[in-house]
Amino acid sequence: MTFSTREIQKRSISPIFWLLFGAGGMLSALFGPALILITGILAPTGTGLPENFLSYDAALAFARNPLGKLVLLALIALFFWHGAERVFLTLKDMKAGSSLVLKLGTYGVAALVSVATILLLLAIGF
């Protein structure tokens, strides 16, 4: 008996987007709800947080700290890559446009946001 073998296909570059998607998904599951609670509800109403917790000075200091920069970049960029993959696949299934257009509108946005975040974090200084 002879088995047929499929021609070995060209490697897809999907793993890159899939890993970014996976990393963003994990981060948003771990930190998303807590972030919404702290920055969206607790801080603006001033409940249960130390004074000046999210004051301009405190936030600026956080964004100037190299570790803080990394945290902010990871959270912002990976959340966007996660959302981009979801939206891309949904639009693709809905046949909302050509693959290139959809990629630019989703992955493109995530890439732009990532680059902008890096630039802003550098501009804020150390």
């Binding site: 073998t5 499929r6 070995i8 296909q9 060209k10 490697r11 897809s12 999907s14």
Partner: peptide, 8 residues
């Protein structure tokens, strides 16, 4: 190697 493509 048989599944790393777009159709994989």
């Amino acid at each position: 190697d048989t599944i790393h493509g777009e159709d994989g």
